[in-house]
Simulated assay, not measured.
Amino acid sequence: MKVEIRLFATLRDGRDKVLEMEVEENTTVSKVLDIFKIKQEDVALLLINGRDGKFDASLHEGDYLSLFPPVGGG
C-alpha cells in the first residue's frame, strides 16, 4: 500500500521533504521511523492525515504521516 511521509525541519536533513513509499498493510509509525533511522525522541509531534497520532498507530492506504522535531529558540 502507498503512504506519504512528510518530514519537517531537521528531520529533512539528508532526506526529501515529501516521500511516497510502499509499506505492508498495518505498518506502524514506529516501523516507518525505523526505516528512516529516526529515533522516537527526535519526534516531538506526529500527525496522521492532519490529526494527532501515536507511534503504535497502524497506517492505511493513502495515509499521510507528518513528522516534526522539537523546536528550540529564544
Rank of each mutant, 00 (worst) to 15 (best):
A44G: 12
D16F: 03
V23P: 00
D34I: 03
S30N: 13
I5Q: 06
A9G: 08
Y64I: 04
D63Q: 02
V18F: 09
D13I: 12
K39D: 07
F55H: 00
V18P: 00
E20N: 10
S58L: 09
F8Y: 15
V29G: 01
R15Q: 10
G53D: 09
V32S: 00
T27E: 05
V18G: 00
D56P: 02
L45W: 09
S58C: 11
A44Y: 10
F68G: 05
D56T: 13
S58Y: 12
K31A: 15
G14N: 12
R6G: 01
D63G: 04
K17Y: 11
V18C: 02
H60W: 11
L46Q: 12
A9H: 02
K31Q: 15
G50C: 10
P69W: 10
V29S: 02
E22R: 04
L7S: 07
E41D: 13
K2P: 04
P69G: 09
A57L: 00
D56L: 02
Q40L: 01
I35Q: 05
E41M: 02
G73Y: 14
R15E: 11
E22N: 14
L67N: 11
V32G: 01
T10L: 09
E25N: 02
G53C: 03
L7Q: 08
G62M: 03
L59H: 04
E25T: 02
E61Y: 03
V18D: 09
Y64T: 10
E22D: 15
A57P: 00
L19V: 15
A57K: 00
L45C: 08
F36Y: 14
G14W: 08
F55T: 00
V3S: 02
Y64M: 03
V71G: 06
G14Y: 13
K2M: 09
I48R: 06
V29D: 04
A57I: 05
A44T: 07
L33G: 03
V43E: 09
K17M: 07
S66R: 01
Q40A: 09
R12Y: 02
M21C: 12
R12L: 05
L67V: 14
G14A: 14
G62K: 09
K39Y: 06
F68R: 00
I5V: 15
L33M: 09
V23N: 01
K17R: 10
L33A: 07
V43G: 10
I5N: 03
L67K: 05
K54G: 10
L65R: 05
K39Q: 06
L59Q: 07
V71M: 12
H60S: 14
I38R: 01
T28V: 04
A57C: 00
K37G: 09
S66M: 07
